[in-house]
């Protein structure tokens, strides 16, 4: 009886220590940086090919290029889009220091993000690609878990005074479906497995990060360029 109690106490200690080690070892991994993605897939494309599939903003001759792979239903991508990007835009992009290329990478686990991505490209025909993308990120909870996301997405588009009939027709025509599929395929070729993922002048960074850390990365790249 006494012996089994000692074994019991030892097992309790083992679970506590083992659990503590496990939790500590899975510590914060925001903004993991490396030369290549930690994927088993070897990149078969280069980050410079992003120009062909992504939506770019900023001077094409800027010394630093940020390629972002993002999913419109990913809250960490929303954090980057709503907190980091707006702060980086005036001081780095509009001053010609950084070119930012946004590449759609709808994850299979987010069933509605592909449709949302297609709609943002449709909105691009009305000159509101970035506006709709921002609004989709802001209102993610209104559409990301819907069985049929189209009504909610179109209702959000309507708030931006977009022509929703034209958007719906564009979505149904499938004219941008291949484009989003192509960007998704490109992400897989680059070894992307999670969003947001970045290539900053070719250096791979996975995960969202606070503005200060992102700015520090950009400054480091600018000083080295």
């Amino acid at each position: 009886m006494k012996r089994s109690l000692y074994v019991f106490y030892a097992l309790i200690a083992l679970v506590v220590v083992g659990g503590g080690v496990w939790i500590a070892s899975s510590g914060q991994k925001s903004g993991r940086s490396s030369s290549v993605p930690p994927s088993s897939v070897q990149p078969v494309a280069t980050w410079k090919d992003a120009e062909e599939v992504g939506m770019a903003v900023g001077d094409p001759k800027a010394p630093v290029t940020v390629v972002e792979f993002a999913d419109l239903a990913c809250p960490y991508c929303a954090y980057m889009a709503l907190k980091v990007f707006p702060a980086v835009k005036p001081s780095y992009i509009e001053t010609g220091k950084v070119r930012w290329i946004f590449v759609d990478f709808p994850l299979p686990s987010h069933r509605n993000s592909f449709t949302a991505a297609v709609l943002t490209h449709c909105a691009g025909e009305q000159g509101k690609y970035w506006d709709l993308q921002e609004r989709f990120f802001e209102r993610m909870n209104d559409w990301a878990h819907e069985q049929d996301p189209v009504p909610a997405l179109l209702s959000i588009a309507e708030e931006l005074n977009l022509d929703t009939k034209a958007l719906k027709a564009c979505l149904e025509s499938g004219v941008y479906t291949d484009r989003v599929k192509k960007s998704q395929q490109y992400g897989l070729q680059m070894g992307i497995r999670a969003t947001p993922s970045f290539f900053i002048n070719g250096r791979f960074v996975e995960g969202a990060m606070p503005l200060e850390r992102f700015q520090a990365l950009l400054d480091e790249m600018l000083s080295g360029s």
Partner: peptide, 15 residues
């Protein structure tokens, strides 16, 4: 946000 990757897709659906 104190442990784990702050990224979607790499955490077996937990995010």
């Amino acid at each position: 946000g104190l442990v784990g990757s702050v990224a979607c897709g790499g955490s077996a659906g937990c995010e």
